[in-house]
Design a protein around this nucleic acid. Structure first.
Lengths: 179, 179
DNA sequence: CCCACCATGTAACATGTTACATGATTGG
DNA sequence: CCAATCATGTAACATGTTACATGGTGGG
């Protein structure tokens, strides 16, 4: 099962039923900060899952006339989701950061670091606001991923902060916060 | 400029000249741990860069008969690389970890955590071996990205270690090392 | 000499990115 | 009522993944 398929099934379990458009909105709002999915892929995936019998299709006509297609889990879809949840994956994530790539190939660290630092600080603030806003009722999964996000943002901030003032001289190394 | 193009130019600056095959080997060996690139894309990119005048092409016939195509930077290619190095990007990386995705959608943390913990420990060991092996002559860029890799691996290990024993009960939260 | 693996690619298909299209709704 | 935006998609193209092809090379 592809990640997108898993996301579609997982979101539909929560939402009951939804159009691909709504699924995309949900995905952006909830997973968006650690996993992005293009809407084109959501449309393809809902079609494929429906063809495979994991989703039921319903054509809706909203008052006003504009139609849309609404999907919901079938029993088979529920089973597939449960099975997939039990699988464990041993794949590791990649860092895959364009800024890191530039750094690797010899870009001057300081200007990169200034931008990255600001962006990561904004991101961390957003995460922490979300955590603060939570009243303790959010399910454990999302809460844990939020925790992971916060931890890694803090690492990025440490990393780039150390580089904001680093001169681009001949010395390869510097004293760092690295243990 | 696409990341792959930047990688091809950057590697060719180091290597002087290389075939797409060699570029792929180099990319895997050096960047592989934080940025992967499929070989198909390397072949496409070398062709495109050559067509744009950033690379010079030379058809080689190795003793034995098997031919290959060797590329090297043109002056224009060097200029493009220098320009690109000066650009700063404000895009943030995504975590994009399949295990995190499962966690988000309610997978039982413990079994996931066991596998992830082991895998991240191996990865950290590999990074640290590389750092230990370095005699201080490695350029700063690679050394910095290695440092980032190590820091994040440590975060992942903390994260998953806290989850290896977590019961999958009704309590949403637990005491964590999060500060 | 044969099998396995390295070197060197090409091709088919899946996924991701970006642009376009079009009907409703709403703020000015 | 016009422009912007939301809702709802389709399509074109770029990139990534995976399978296949084929010539050399080295070990048993």
């Amino acid at each position: 099962m592809t990640p997108t398929a898993f996301i579609v099934l997982g979101l539909l379990e929560r939402l009951g039923s939804a159009s691909p458009y709504e699924l995309k909105q949900q995905a952006t709002a909830t997973l968006g900060n650690f996993w992005s999915t293009p809407h084109s892929q959501i449309y393809r995936t809902t079609e494929a899952l429906a063809a495979a019998g994991l989703l039921a299709v319903r054509a809706e006509t909203t008052p006003g006339g504009r139609g849309r297609t609404v999907y919901s889990l079938t029993r088979k879809g529920r089973r597939a989701l449960a099975t997939e949840r039990r699988h464990t994956a041993a794949d590791l994530p990649e860092l895959r950061d364009p800024a890191l790539l530039r750094l690797y190939f010899g870009a001057d660290p300081a200007p990169l670091a200034v931008e990255q630092l600001a962006a990561h600080r904004r991101q961390l603030a957003a995460y922490e606001a979300r955590r603060a806003q939570d009243d303790g009722t959010e399910p454990r999964g999302p809460w844990l991923t939020l925790r992971a996000g916060i931890a890694h943002e803090r690492e990025w901030i440490k990393f780039w902060r150390d580089l904001t003032g680093a001169a681009d001289g001949h010395t390869n190394r510097m004293a760092g916060s690295d243990g």
